[in-house]
Amino acid sequence: MTQHTGRIALITGASRGIGKACALGLAKAGAQVIACGRSKAALEELDDEIFAATGQHATLIPFDITDGDAMDRLSSVLFERFGRVDILVHAAAISGTLSPVTHHEPKDFEKIVSVNLSATWRLLRAMEPLLRQSAAGRAIFLTTGATVTTGRAFWGPYGATKAAMETLVRAWADEIEITPIRAAMVSPGAMRTRMRAAAYPGEEPESVPHPNEIVPLILTLADADRVPPLETIHFPDWRAQNADIVA
């Protein structure tokens, strides 16, 4: 397993699902985890698991990722406390209700845009100065498959915001190419998460991978000694090629 001893790792959406698995995996690999999520209780449960596994506590930041002012304050607090961020894993997202594009209520559409796109921009804006303080900053963004981002019935707002997020991240990666920061994007595919269960209520959970299985890929992409590819990595393909190291 790739080690990240002493590295500072911030994870959004850390209260459950892929974000939680990444937070726990990075903590086990030696990173100092900063776990962000809306549910204080869920973050405390995560911290209990991290402490049981490592003997160290995470830094818990319960807040709504759509609160831009809170994001800016977080940047200042983290700079004062840690001086940098070495690893950023952005897992927070919502799919919204699956329905025809014209059937969404404006407030619901705007919520999806706010969480999946606008919050990503605010996160980049707030965390870039901290990533620049790292000798090898790594920023990893969870996205979705091309069948959704190129247009799939009933997934319109989610697919559109994820496609826009990918464009935003690629532009940012091009802009910071002369820095030690490198970005990566991962499409998890079908995975045993609450979002997946809501979209496919009849699916047997055990038929899709557990979020823990994606952790080795995240640890590899966060490695300070490797340069991750900017093209989106599709976890099912990576998993098939690296079956020997998947948890």
Results as ranks from 00 to 15, higher is better:
29 A>C: 03
177 E>N: 11
43 L>N: 05
191 M>A: 07
76 S>V: 13
237 D>Q: 14
61 I>V: 15
167 T>D: 15
174 D>G: 14
100 P>N: 06
98 L>R: 00
233 I>T: 14
145 G>Q: 11
231 E>L: 08
201 P>R: 12
22 C>H: 01
123 L>K: 08
23 A>M: 11
154 F>C: 09
60 L>A: 05
136 A>S: 04
51 F>P: 03
212 N>C: 08
22 C>K: 06
34 I>N: 02
69 D>E: 15
173 A>C: 07
30 G>K: 14
77 V>I: 10
99 S>A: 15
162 K>C: 03
112 I>C: 02
206 E>R: 13
51 F>D: 14
171 A>S: 09
27 A>M: 08
77 V>D: 09
118 S>G: 02
42 A>N: 15
191 M>L: 14
115 V>Q: 12
238 W>V: 00
209 P>W: 00
143 T>W: 01
64 D>Y: 03
200 Y>C: 07
168 L>N: 12
46 L>P: 06
33 V>M: 01
158 Y>G: 02
142 L>E: 05
45 E>G: 08
220 T>H: 14
15 S>C: 09
118 S>A: 08
177 E>K: 10
131 L>T: 05
196 R>P: 00
236 P>N: 06
219 L>C: 11
29 A>E: 00
84 R>C: 10
74 L>D: 06
55 G>L: 09
13 G>R: 10
180 P>F: 06
213 E>G: 07
14 A>K: 10
83 G>K: 09
50 I>E: 11
163 A>N: 11
238 W>S: 04
143 T>H: 02
49 E>N: 08
27 A>W: 00
113 V>R: 01
166 E>N: 09
242 N>A: 08
161 T>G: 01
6 G>E: 07
119 A>H: 05
196 R>H: 04
171 A>G: 11
36 C>K: 04
97 T>R: 14
183 A>Q: 08
10 L>C: 00
9 A>S: 02
48 D>N: 12
34 I>F: 04
15 S>Q: 12
54 T>C: 12
105 E>P: 09
216 P>R: 12
168 L>A: 09
72 D>P: 13
203 E>Y: 10
167 T>K: 15
62 P>H: 09
165 M>H: 07
178 I>N: 08
106 P>L: 15
